[in-house]
């Protein structure tokens, strides 16, 4: 199991690095094999940062990410290499993920050198073909071409095949289909669904709520680095508890229903802000501002469990993360 416990990431910005910019604050959740969690957030929400921290591409400032109990920040050398056998990632821009001067099979060559050095050529080719078949790609069509000769969809599938080659158990999919065309998106998405059925645990990072709703069991809504709502996808989309979630859902353009008069609460100014008088359910549940959560690791993380497995955060947390303290009567 991959667990994030109160993970934070702070950058030092400003003149002489005096100011702290919190990209991620107190994020806690866990991912099991065989389930898909959507991590939904707008730009600046920190979702990509979380993905990169799980992949050990960025360092964690606060809290810890553990894999089967081991803190991944402590991994070095061969332990880190075996971590990468279990956890892999695919990123947003397929054309940036491939080195343009090498052919597409270069990415496989890299892992062969590190992980399959002792395998014979025949064995390696067999594994490679199996992985490519699992993502419905024809080896002859893709391996000897340059990235610019392949489509975005094919490239993303190649990267997924690479993860499968390593027998990955967890995949961080960071906006992997946002740069693909509508007709290929659904194919890659369906592929993820099939892999989930085969036991892969997927962290599906996206800003597109419809995609998250299509594929995931659980949903985490992120805003400005903090979790505002978390729970089963049906619950989060069906009965959203947090006003930000409601705004997001209302803003999504539907295909068979017009926006109409629904006020999405979007201010034509500096983005979303809670309406004055907006009731903070978190504060109503934990008036002392702390968080009383049953699951270990969530205590103090600013989330209250209002229904089984359905968590909600404060409507307007203060700058240092405590609850802004709005009860039903607060203005």
């Amino acid at each position: 199991m991959l667990t994030l416990e109160r993970v934070s990431k702070t950058y030092k910005v400003g003149l002489f690095g005096g100011t702290d910019l919190a990209a991620v604050r107190d994020v806690s959740f866990s991912l099991q094999p065989g389930e898909v969690i959507s991590l939904i957030g707008e730009s600046g929400s920190g979702k990509s940062t979380i993905g990169k921290m799980i992949l050990r591409l960025l360092a964690v400032n606060g809290g810890a990410i553990t894999h089967d109990g081991t803190d991944i920040a402590t991994l070095r050398g061969s332990a880190l290499r075996s971590y990468y056998r279990t956890v892999q990632g695919v990123f947003q821009d397929p054309f940036s993920s491939f080195n343009p001067i090498f052919k597409a099979d270069h990415v496989f060559g890299l892992i062969r050198g590190v992980y399959f050095g002792s395998a014979s050529t025949a064995e390696w080719e067999r594994k490679l073909n199996d992985a490519l078949e699992a993502v419905t790609l024809d080896p002859g069509q893709v391996l000897h071409k340059y990235p610019h000769q392949l489509s975005g969809g094919q490239l993303q599938r190649l990267l997924i095949a690479r993860a499968l080659l390593l027998d990955t158990r967890y995949l961080v999919a960071d906006e992997i289909i946002s740069m693909l065309d509508a007709s290929t998106r659904i194919d890659v998405l369906n592929l993820l669904g099939d892999l989930k059925a085969r036991g892969l645990g997927i962290l599906f990072i996206t800003h597109d709520l419809s995609l998250g709703n299509y594929i995931s069991e659980r949903t985490v809504i992120l805003r400005r680095g903090r979790i505002v709502e978390m729970g089963a996808t049906a619950a989060v989309f069906g009965q959203p508890l947090h006003p930000y979630t409601r705004m997001l859902i209302a803003s999504v353009p539907r295909l068979h229903e017009k926006w109409g008069q629904i006020d999405a609460g979007v201010r034509a100014g500096s983005g979303w802000a809670p309406a004055p008088g907006e009731r903070c359910l978190f504060h109503a549940a934990v008036p002392d501002g702390g968080a009383a959560a049953d699951l270990a690791g969530l205590a103090g993380s600013g989330l209250a469990e209002l229904e089984a497995g359905h968590f909600v955060g404060c409507v307007a947390p203060t700058a240092d993360g405590t609850c802004g303290g709005r009860s039903a009567s607060a203005a």
């Binding site: 659904i186 419809s210 594929i215 989309f237």
Partner: peptide, 14 residues
């Protein structure tokens, strides 16, 4: 995909 359509229930095709 639209909100309300889920992979297990209705598999969309590209």
């Amino acid at each position: 995909p639209e909100i309300g359509v889920r992979f297990e229930e209705q598999r969309l095709t590209g």
